[in-house]
Design a protein around this nucleic acid. Sequence first.
DNA 1: GATAAAACATGAATTATTTCAGCCTTTGAA
DNA 2: TTCAAAGGCTGAAATAATTCATGTTTTATC
Lengths: 232, 232
Amino acid sequence: MENSNRSLYDCQKCMFKALSSRYMPPEDFELIRRTSVQLQFEKGETILKQGATSHQLVYLHKGVVKFNYRYETGKNYIMTIVSGPKLLGGTNLFFKETNIFSLVAMESCDVCLIDGKALRSVAQKHASFLLAMCERTTEMFQSSIFNFISMAHKQVNGRIADILIYLWEEVYKNNPDDFVLTRKEIAEFAACSHENVINTLSKFNKEGIITLEGKRIRINDFKKLHDISKRG
Amino acid sequence: MENSNRSLYDCQKCMFKALSSRYMPPEDFELIRRTSVQLQFEKGETILKQGATSHQLVYLHKGVVKFNYRYETGKNYIMTIVSGPKLLGGTNLFFKETNIFSLVAMESCDVCLIDGKALRSVAQKHASFLLAMCERTTEMFQSSIFNFISMAHKQVNGRIADILIYLWEEVYKNNPDDFVLTRKEIAEFAACSHENVINTLSKFNKEGIITLEGKRIRINDFKKLHDISKRG
DNA sequence: GATAAAACATGAATTATTTCAGCCTTTGAA
DNA sequence: TTCAAAGGCTGAAATAATTCATGTTTTATC
């Protein structure tokens, strides 16, 4: 983590700023901006740690992060993976001080940490802004609900198909070459052993549904993936 | 569903009214009350249907409801079970018009359907109220996240232990005799076959952890249940 | 370039889970 | 009271998933 004084990016180009400006005058946004800090996180770095208290809201400007839950046994579970630009608030951070999971950068990420107190005080002045923010974070939450349902109720074939579809359509859509999860990470996401992931992926590979090029996964047949997903 | 004109219960005793009163004058609450309707739902009745559009927030005054997700294949999954009094908003209803799951009464329920438009307009006037509501619905959401994690990552023993603990401590705490889920419902909650539920429960029964008295389940040894839950 | 660590891969043995077939019990309606 | 339907229960067979043992490839580091 590099605590730079210079700006990583221009606030004028930030979607959070754009959203805010619709609901408040510049001087109110200025309070938020002044109390915020821009940081860069490298691959593997923890942005927020599970169990720690945090008074900040994370705005992910650029990059991909995983929501990581760690059991006492040391096992990790990836709850979801998202790409910026996105406001990562809601359940973990927005209204709770203790993080229920960690946020970990999966590639180089530009992040803005927004002070919760300042945000709250501004939000109280501008209820429409608060409503809009709630809608955003609720949306993100909804998409992870579908992940959860899939993980809880489908077999490994269907779970992995769902994960591939999700990652492709929601996360790596615009830059599929960055799609480089390890088998272990896919296993932590799909809630199964990494051997099972490997076997399932090579089965998909043999059937021509995907192509494995080393780490990189190329999806050839979305229709079949959707079929597998539906079958469970 | 009995669309009675008379009041099922006195608004003065409602927790939602109590919450509201802390943040707004009586005349504003009156707008919410006027646009709301009290209804009684019998066991098995659907309060809100998955896929339908709804412009209302559900306040569960009394009773137990399940959050039911139905796949195209016709299979049902219970996402969570909650007891009143509780505001059932957030992900399903608060900010989305299409319900992503159904709400089904598991016993006789007193429910108040609050008009979303009226609520929104009042909420915009009183941002602290909106903030408080977000906190409530977020809390409920958090607890269901832990359910999901358990369902996705534990084996049937651990999942059923978790469900028993959850239902006991959060739902049927005050009236354990109402604890009458069918084995099929437990299976839909635990994401496994109902035979597996039956086998696991009779195993727990033989080990003295629980006692099966027909449909009723009595929990004897919470410590062992927690052990099983931890082991996974 | 050598080396160590991590990731990837495969198959066999073990364990977990579902499916199936059969039967008993309870419940509610005719 | 009878009957059908639904729920509960059990064990065996089939399927799915994990664990384990082993070896290869890739990646990072010195």
